[in-house]
């Protein structure tokens, strides 16, 4: 009798162990992650004399794509032609483009080490996947417009400019929190 219960108990323990090995690890302490992020930013300042960014890389990507499809149209556009430059080298041969490729890789490395790579749609419990994806697309669109208007996003303005005590960046950062908190009520069904 005891041997049977022992076997069952051991089996259950083994299964739980196996499951625990595959489940995602908890995230790091936010202050620790923040200090890590700050040191990466500091390294960029010291080595390159510039900070981090994200949205700018996508502008380069679009400029390159547009230049390939419709070069005359792109050259006539005052915004995109700055990213094309004199046309001697590809707009993709850009610091931010390579940095953002690194962001994808770094995220994947961290996610792999913590068993967090999983095909999924991240959302609150009260919304369906399709609606969530629609919101993701619309939010991304607004983010693209906002980031261009502000001359940078959370990385290029808030983080980088924040650490450099840039006036425009601090005003931007306050506006981001204000905008998000003001609109959060209308999005509560998506997240909570």
């Amino acid at each position: 009798m005891t041997t049977i219960t022992d076997t069952i108990r051991n089996e259950v323990i083994d299964k739980t162990k196996a499951k625990a090995e595959k489940t995602a690890q908890p995230y790091w302490n936010p202050y620790l992650s923040g200090i890590g992020l700050g040191l990466v930013l500091l390294a960029a300042f010291v080595v390159m004399g510039r900070g981090l960014g994200a949205s700018g890389a996508f502008t380069s990507l679009i400029s390159a794509g547009m230049n390939a499809v419709a070069p005359e149209h792109t050259a006539a556009n005052n915004y995109f032609n700055e990213y094309i430059g004199d046309g001697e080298q590809s707009p993709l041969k850009d610091w931010l483009v390579f940095e953002v490729i690194g962001v994808f890789v770094g995220g994947f490395i961290s996610g792999s080490l913590a068993n967090r790579i999983k095909k999924s749609v991240d959302k609150g419990p009260r919304i369906g996947s399709h609606k969530r994806l629609l919101f993701a697309f619309v939010g991304g669109g607004l983010m693209g417009i906002g980031a261009k208007l502000a001359r940078g996003c959370t990385s290029g303005q808030a983080l980088t400019g924040g650490a450099l005590l840039n006036l425009g960046s601090w005003a931007f950062m306050m506006a981001v929190f204000a905008g998000a908190y003001a609109f959060a009520y209308f999005m509560r069904r998506q997240w909570t």
């Binding site: 919101f135 619309v138 939010g139 991304g140 669109g141 607004l142 983010m143 693209g144 417009i145 906002g146 980031a147 261009k148 208007l149 502000a150 001359r151 996003c153 959370t154 303005q157 005003a171 931007f172 950062m173 306050m174 506006a175 981001v176 929190f177 204000a178 905008g179 998000a180 908190y181 003001a182 609109f183 959060a184 999005m187 998506q190």
Partner: peptide, 11 residues
């Protein structure tokens, strides 16, 4: 831009 980005963030 920050306000638009903030709204885009929460959406």
């Amino acid at each position: 831009g920050g306000l638009i980005l903030g709204v885009g963030f929460v959406i």
